[in-house]
Amino acid sequence: MAELLQFVFSGLTVGAIYALVALGFTLIYKASDIINFAQGEFVMLGGMTTVFVTLAGVSLPLAALIAIIVTTAIGLALHRFAIEPARGASPVALIMITIGASIFLRGVAQIIFDRRFHSLPSLFGGDPIKFGGAAILPQSLVVLASAMVIVTLLWLFIDRTLLGKAVIATAANRLAARLIGVDTRRIVDFSFAVSAAIGAIAGVLITPIALTSYDVGTLLALKGFAAAMLGGIGSALGAVVGGLLIGLFEAFAAGYLSSNYKDAVAFLIILVVLVSIPQGLFGRAKIERV
């Protein structure tokens, strides 16, 4: 029982990070139909920038803030200088651009940072908290709480603000949104910026628990993408649930089977789910109207 609880804790912690990455995928996809494979690099940039700014003597909270701002700017730049100029290109071409961007960002990161692994101290101490026979790091609770806050804020924002409504309108029908006066380009700008910020926050949050390095982005992008698809692309709720589920699958597979096969089990389950529910858990079935 204690063991089970332990796996649930660690699964939810990693899952929360996957959920945040998946949320980034979802936000950009909703605004622009683009699958942004550079999403994982935002997480890397958040973590790595914080590490190196603290190494320069800046306090951790300030460093984290700087990292988030820098990453947000990079997300914006990605849209302005790489995605915008290619407007009208096929979805595959756009995906290739984001993959090019992720290789580029990884390459730049290994030049200005380095190729080693780094960690951050936790602001909340390293002593595990005992709970029902299982131990949980304070930082894990921080990750979970922050993820919950981000999801709530995002939901409030989309639901309660005019800009949020514009995002929904753009997601539903870009042309119609433009006709009623929504500046859809700014909406996409915005979605890239917010996705980048969410990614950076995830990076800051996870680095005290998991190490970071210039190349952690690829795997995170994979998991985040898988989570978004498992939940049903375009569904924010799906992204969160998908992320948490994948985290849990992995933790259970690692705990009860073998840690070597944890990714295999996670993807096997994703395959089985998608084959039985082709539109993902919360996605809407799309019937082609002819």
Partner: peptide, 15 residues
């Protein structure tokens, strides 16, 4: 600079 350049060139080509 190899990787950064590769990514950059890939982006430029696709744009």
């Amino acid at each position: 600079y190899e990787q950064a350049l590769l990514g950059f060139i890939l982006m430029v080509f696709m744009i």
